[in-house]
Design a protein around this nucleic acid. Structure first.
Lengths: 211, 211
DNA sequence: TTGGGCGGTATACATTTGTCTACTCGTCAT
DNA sequence: ATGACGAGTAGACAAATGTATACCGCCCAA
């Protein structure tokens, strides 16, 4: 993948390994990294100017990886008609298969480094847009406006990522988390559907609709 | 406010100050802390055994603070009938007034320390339960089962916290974030309302309901 | 054959960190 | 008046960190 090879690759992999256990990307030390990679500390400087640049490159590495996952999802979705159940299943399986990348993303999305935060934000927005366009193209929610679909996709992507850590770390809760996520998505779209209708057509919903 | 006074208070305040700027609670150093507090590094040991214990105490301090906020919200809600709009407005204003506590909560909820994560999780669950019971007692969503109300409250609390950092740091987006949050909540409950009904009663929704 | 990058190593250094022991000083109970 | 004690300080120490300089071997181009 990309131009990652030799010592550079070893360092990135070491970072992912460390992060999955207990650490956060921004808190990694140069020597700690080299130690885990089985390299001399100074080798780090052959590949990265400093730790900030290293963090950004790791993030790029992860982004590339995730994009591949999303592309794969898209192919699946085109091959057969997918309900939210299958999509959620796929995404969580992806998280499970890439725990390091997932953990980094979750940690740094709200982490202390503005640079990394912004980079991740952009990546998530891209994924959300892709998801929304997919939904729109396939006409999965006919009654809902495009802007609303985008908004819900935006929320959904974040919600899923939000729960990814628990999903990875607590195997006994996986079924429950997945179920909740599906209900989350369904409720969002169904709720949006109601918004777009004239409430008076549906007597049973009147009192819950508010002004 | 608890038994916080003197040097102990100074250290906690120093931590909050540092965290709001760039750092994360788990990454704070003992000496850095004492420096910011204007104290000798060793004074730290007069109040805390080590940095882990310090983190927990800070978290407790914050939890106490947040509970006060929730209590205040409850009083408001009892005094006049509140829609989701007012509630969301209040919560975000609380975040704005307590940026340090909010930042800590968001950062450590997915941070590297399992102990802090678990403590925060418990705190959030308590708030979610409180919110759900409030909604149920006041009969705000008559058609929805209690367990579903709890589930949605759980999600809502997390969603709001999830967006709190952006709300604090990006003033120009505050209006948008608040609007999205309100729509989020409304869609969840309206979507849940549909779930609980027999779909066939509502022809317009048939195709979106799935099997 | 030579010479220069490139990736990797060794040594060294100043700085910072967590922690230990020992000292000081005010307050309060006896 | 004495002594214990809580809160703060001072100094020291080993360990770890980021970085700089210099050295080595390999491969490829000239």
């Amino acid at each position: 993948m990309g131009t990652l090879a030799g010592g550079k690759l070893k360092l990135v992999q070491a970072a992912l390994r460390l992060i999955t256990e207990t650490r956060s990307l921004t808190s990694l030390g140069l020597r700690e990294l080299a130690r885990e990679a089985g390299l001399n500390p100074n080798t780090f400087y052959r590949h990265f100017r400093n730790l900030d640049e290293f963090g950004l490159q790791v993030l790029g590495y992860i982004a590339e990886d995730m994009k591949a996952g999303v592309r794969q999802l898209r192919q699946m979705a085109d091959s057969s008609e997918q309900a939210s159940h299958d999509t959620v299943t796929f995404v969580y399986h992806y998280f499970l298969a890439n725990p390091a990348a997932t953990t980094v993303a979750v940690r740094e999305l709200h982490g202390p480094s503005p640079v990394l935060r912004q980079a991740l934000e952009a990546q998530l927005n891209a994924s959300a847009r892709e998801m929304a366009e997919d939904i729109l193209e396939r006409g999965l929610v006919p009654g809902v406006e495009a802007t609303v679909v985008h908004e819900i996709s935006h929320m959904t992507i974040r919600y899923i990522l939000f729960r990814a850590l628990d999903f990875i770390e607590k195997p006994e809760q996986r079924e429950r988390i997945q179920g909740e996520t599906e209900r989350f998505i369904n409720r969002q779209f169904r709720g949006a559907l109601i918004e777009s209708l004239d409430i008076r057509q549906i007597p049973a919903l009147k009192k819950a609709a508010g002004p």
